[in-house]
């Protein structure tokens, strides 16, 4: 039996007509207020360290090799050993073929191993292939699965199909955490982002995630705010805390702090943890390290002092 969808009761599909509308101008204004917060001194250092601990250090390239992935894992373990008191990143995120290599490289460290699955990034494969992709990734040792939704089906209005697919993948994940990538850059409007968020959470997502990083625009603060508000409504309704992962396009420490301000003022203290918030990023860590160095010493160091990978 390769099709988990048969186990899903149709009544679990949420009524998307009841999802609140989104006003893009209003969202933009709220975001600009977050960006005006002035985060200084201790609160800045605290935020920078928290942001570091929330990073899913990522390499998702056709040219990835075991050598590249091992280096990435080394970086995840040794962010910048000359600086004391640094956290490590939350997880390493790779393609399914690289899970074995990464698993070995991370052995003995408390760093999660995430793998994309379900014919990432397009999601254009039969459901049986997506399920097999997921099962294989879990069997190889992935703790977290980052799946993509079928954007084509969603844009066609085939919500039931998208819902069933997520639910089936969730089942295939077993113990592994499921992050559902909406690929907001392909959804077109914030209204659709909000609906897709609701759909994914009801279908069993542990996290909802903005983007694959392969489509522009990737994560934006506007899209992330709309998803955070959907998470809050789901919490109000069910008492269940769903995580959030903006991915792609966040490469500066300043941006990361602005995201944390937004998270803090939208969902509050409970979400200020890597268990419920992640940054999908490849170059963010180094910029944060440079800022932390600046906070400690008062001067910026050349980026040549920080290992590129």
């Amino acid at each position: 039996m390769s099709d988990g969808a048969l186990h899903i009761e149709p009544s679990r599909l949420p009524d998307l007509d009841r999802v609140p509308r989104v006003d893009e101008v209003g969202v933009g204004e709220r975001v600009s207020r977050f960006c005006k917060r002035s985060i200084k001194k201790d609160s800045k250092v605290q935020a920078l360290k928290l942001a570091l601990s929330m990073i899913d250090l990522t390499t998702l390239e056709g040219q990835d090799t075991p050598g590249k992935v091992r280096q990435l894992c080394q970086k995840a373990i040794h962010l910048h050993d000359s600086m004391e008191g640094l956290p490590h990143v939350a997880a390493v995120c790779v393609y399914p073929t690289m899970i074995g290599v990464a698993k070995k490289a991370l052995e003995g460290y408390d760093i999660g191993l995430a793998s994309v699955a379900t014919a990432f990034p397009s999601g254009q494969a039969p459901r049986s292939v997506k399920l097999e992709d997921t099962r294989m990734a879990v069997a190889e040792g992935a703790d977290e699965i980052d799946m993509v939704i079928s954007r084509g089906a969603f844009l066609q209005g085939e919500y039931g199909l998208v819902f069933d697919e997520i639910a089936a993948i969730k089942e295939a994940c077993g113990e592994a955490h499921l992050k559902v990538i909406l690929e907001t850059g392909e959804l077109g409007t914030l209204d659709r982002v909000r609906r897709a968020s609701v759909l994914a959470m009801h279908a069993g997502a542990d996290f909802i995630k903005t983007s694959t990083g392969k489509i522009q625009p990737a994560a934006t603060m506007e899209v992330t705010l709309v998803m955070l508000q959907a998470i809050r409504d789901f919490y109000y309704e069910t008492g269940q805390r769903i995580g959030m992962k903006p991915a792609g396009g966040i490469s500066k420490a300043k941006q990361a702090i602005q995201y944390l301000v937004m998270l803090h003022e939208t969902l509050g203290n409970d979400w200020m943890t890597p268990d419920l918030f992640r940054f999908g990023a490849s170059s963010l860590a180094n910029d944060i390290l440079m800022q932390l160095q600046k906070q400690q010493t008062g001067v910026y160091q050349s980026d040549d002092y920080f290992s590129k990978d």
Binding site: K40, L267, N269
Partner: peptide, 18 residues
């Protein structure tokens, strides 16, 4: 709507930015 509350007290606080 349930009575689920979000928590905003304590936690990360913004340092004074005079």
């Amino acid at each position: 709507m349930s009575s689920t509350k979000l928590s905003f007290d304590g936690g990360w606080e913004y340092a004074p930015a005079p």
